[in-house]
Write a protein that binds this DNA or RNA. Structure first.
Length: 510
RNA sequence: GCGGAAGUAGCUCAGCUGGUAGAGCGUCAGCCUUCCAAGCUGAAUGUCGCGAGUUCGAAUCUCGUCUUCCGCUCCA
């Protein structure tokens, strides 16, 4: 574990030292869990984003793009459920110092009653055998009815308290239910405090005329509210998808682990609209398709896994995560959800607009079902970094730090290096630059020994270096050095465009 | 929010019982050099996280505060 910690520390240091990621506002001591992307970080992030966009939009005739605003009408978040669900009432046990979600504590009690009832049903089933009618049993058994009444009472009371925002009442419920902390075993609780995970701000500059609006906590809703606009203008027919990359904001209680969990983050989302009843087939399709995409980023099979959600969110009927094996363990990188017609139906209710599709094949109107793929750009960035950062020991005993990035993701594609900065070699190198610079991000370097320059490019993840030497002046050939094998081949300058273009392309990956 | 650890150059860190701020690597300039962090010369870079206190004198002692990391808590 400590070795993993060290590795992760080194990756974080490497990010800062080589211009990938800086702590935000660092001259003012930084801002907690906010990061800026430096010269090479932005290139890498952009390349990951482009690769996603191409894989989704460019390679699918039936997926179109969108860039919706971060600010949205406040009712959006009522409709989506975020105003309710993103408000967590928290409570601390004073003895164990453990913090709990008050709603989870209360729901655990409800769950216990539910389990009791299930046991009753099980027992009865054994007793009655095939003749057993579960529905009838549940409707008549006095034990079950008593428990059910208890559950209903708790839930009704809790719901009312939540809606009224009555934190004192929620604490009272916890006390009345005699809930104890599982660690200390005591019932010595603090007051219940409300945490809103959405950032709010004012729209309108005059305070009393302004209204509270939220920074979007997910990009998905921008897609749903534009469903009709896109449908009416893109000539798409179901099944089709809308893709979007953008920032989202969540006021996490704890933001940790470098760029893994931050309060401001970037999502790459695609909402795929399908005929009701066909959602599971598409859910499975996207599960496979998205896993292939992650594999194309160079992640080995052992680094990725699916993690099924046992308990799905309020909007979904199936959910799975694609997890990556970060130095701090397997963690979610992407979520794939079957969101049913929840979102569109909610927006219908709140907006009064019909969000339907007329399906000419079956001659029916319906609210489409939605399969969502939502991947964290920053999390993917971190995974790519963790996967490619290597501290190698070479045959001669020296060590080198190399970012073994897939070539198509590398911030710099080619380092152009004159062997020496005299004899016309720099001039010749500039010629090579002008040949390649329209297609690729290049880096010119003539300082220090050639070995040192190679190592500098290794640390940035540059997959290829072109070295111009004296022979170049004679026969117009250069050496092309491979980052991973450190092997060199001599090629003609005339063939460079084709060779490099092929090596850093992504055509063969998907 | 709780507990633990840490904040000194771009990075990694040293700096004793208080006495003018250091190393390695990196960066920059020059010399040398015909392919994997070579060598030589020179240079830049620090309110020692911040603020108070003790003291003739604080990177060092005391208190406060901020930030980061680890664990807990939370996580659509």
């Amino acid at each position: 574990m400590s070795q993993q910690d060290d590795l992760f520390k080194n990756i974080v240091s490497h990010c800062k030292e080589y211009g990938f990621i800086f702590p935000s506002s660092e001259i003012y001591d930084g801002l907690g869990a906010v990061y800026d992307y430096g010269p090479y970080g932005i290139e890498l992030k952009k390349n990951i984003q482009d690769f996603w966009w191409k894989a989704m939009v460019q390679l699918h005739e039936n997926i179109v793009g969108l860039d919706s605003a971060i600010f949205m009408h406040p009712t959006t978040w009522k409709a989506s459920g975020h105003v309710d669900a993103f408000n967590d009432p928290l409570i601390d046990n004073k003895d164990s110092k453990k913090r709990y979600r008050a709603d989870v504590l209360i729901e655990d009690v409800v769950e216990k009653y539910r389990q009791k009832n299930d046991k009753e049903v099980e027992k009865a089933q054994k007793r009655f055998g095939d003749a057993f009618d579960e529905a009838q049993f549940r409707a008549t058994n006095p034990n079950i009815l008593r428990n059910q009444a208890k559950m209903d009472e708790i839930e009704t009371r809790f719901k009312a308290a939540l809606e009224a925002g009555d934190m004192a009442e929620i604490k009272q419920i916890i006390e009345d239910l005699e809930i104890a902390c599982s660690v200390s075993g005591t019932r010595n609780w603090t007051e219940v405090r409300q945490f809103n995970l959405m950032f709010s701000t004012q729209l309108g500059s005059v305070a009393d005329e302004s209204s509270t609006i939220y920074l979007r906590p997910e990009t998905a809703q921008g897609i749903f509210v534009n469903f009709l606009n896109v449908l009416n203008t893109s000539r798409q027919r179901i099944p089709f998808g809308i893709a979007q990359v953008g920032k989202a904001f969540r006021n996490e209680i704890v933001a940790r682990q470098f760029i893994f969990r931050t309060r401001e983050f970037e999502q790459m989302e695609m909402q795929f609209f399908v005929r009701p009843g066909e959602e599971m087939q598409w859910y499975n399709y996207w599960k496979d398709s998205r896993m292939k995409w992650h594999r194309a980023l160079g992640f080995g099979a052992d680094k990725l896994r699916f993690h099924d959600h046992l308990k799905t969110a309020h909007y979904a009927n199936a959910a799975v995560d694609i997890e990556f094996d970060y130095p701090f363990g397997f963690k979610e990188m992407e979520g794939i959800h079957s969101r049913t017609d929840y979102d569109l139906t909610q927006h219908e209710k709140h907006s009064g607009k019909k969000l339907r599709y007329f399906d000419p094949e079956i001659n029916e109107h319906y609210v489409p079902y939605v399969v969502e793929t939502s991947v964290g750009l920053n999390r993917t960035f971190l995974a790519v970094l963790c996967n490619s950062y290597k501290e190698e020991t070479l045959e001669n005993g020296e060590s080198r730090v190399v970012l073994a990035l897939p070539a198509f993701l590398a911030p710099i594609k080619v380092g152009v290096l004159p062997l020496m900065k005299k004899d016309g070699l720099p001039e010749k190198a500039r010629e090579v630059m002008s040949l390649l610079k329209f297609d690729h991000q290049l880096f010119y370097d003539e300082k220090d020994s050639i070995g040192k320059r190679y190592r500098r490019q290794d640390a940035l993840g540059t997959p290829y270096c072109i070295t111009i030497d004296h022979q170049t002046l004679e026969d117009n050939t250069v050496t092309l050095r491979d980052r991973d094998t450190m092997a060199q081949e001599r090629v003609s300058i005339d063939t460079l465009e084709a060779i490099v273009g092929k090596k850093v392309g992504w055509k063969h990956l998907l």
